[in-house]
Design a protein around this nucleic acid. Structure first.
Lengths: 116, 116
DNA sequence: ACAATACGCCGTATGTTTACGACATAGTGT
DNA sequence: ACACTATGTCGTAAACATACGGCGTATTGT
């Protein structure tokens, strides 16, 4: 019964948290950047580029795939991963909305007395 | 020696992952939204608004404070938390840069054959 | 058919996060 | 001083994440 009192929060909050969690590890950030930089969707070359074992990288790939942020297509022996740019754009918008909401309010200044 | 092979990644990747991790729990997302909506920086009222025990909320607040995303100022008996909007703006920019990098590349279409 | 390669999955060891009750601390009012 | 309130810290239990070696499966070339 511990953990995951997640259900008690709103859908948007859960959704944002879910995606944030996917980006909460530098390896996964690196994977997305790799896929973005190579115009070719590499496969297990990803593992070679990262300072992690192939198994671990595969695990991170699975996590990103579970959220549909990336997609893998089997091409013979190798698997070809690519970014789901549409979803990434949606996610970008969600984050932007969140940050605008967070930064637009009239809040205490940088180092004032917080006169609430 | 397990965990945290974090050091092997670049600074920007680690930084993004660190902030993403802070947003990786709906309670922390909710806290930031709460602080943004109330123009008054509430204190332990935050705990009352969330479906978690006061202790747990305090813990989440500490985590956000550790990253300097929020700030707490003692005002007599109560503590007054407010958003660090400047930092949030910076973070917003980092995320935006990341997402633009991720979505701008010419990648495989939505459901094509991934012809790499 | 057979070796070689690429890859995902299983099991496992260890570290981290989440959640909370019990306690300690510090300011407020009487 | 004394009870009271608001907070944070500590200890702890359970869930989860990270990292990896070893195994199984599927495809390619010979």
């Amino acid at each position: 019964m511990t953990y995951a009192k997640t259900a008690a929060f709103t859908q948007p909050q859960q959704q944002l948290a879910r995606v944030a969690r996917a980006l909460a590890h530098p390896a996964r950030v690196a994977i997305i950047q790799l896929l973005a930089s190579k115009h070719t969707c590499i496969s297990g070359d990803i593992a070679a580029e990262l300072p992690l074992s192939r198994t671990t990288v595969s695990q991170h790939l699975q996590e990103l795939k579970a959220l549909d942020l990336i997609r893998g297509e089997i091409d013979g022996l190798t698997v070809c991963y690519c970014l789901n740019t549409e979803l990434l754009q949606q996610v970008h918008q969600q984050f932007t909305a969140f940050f605008i909401e967070a930064t637009s309010g009239a809040v205490c200044g940088p180092d004032d007395a917080c006169a609430c």
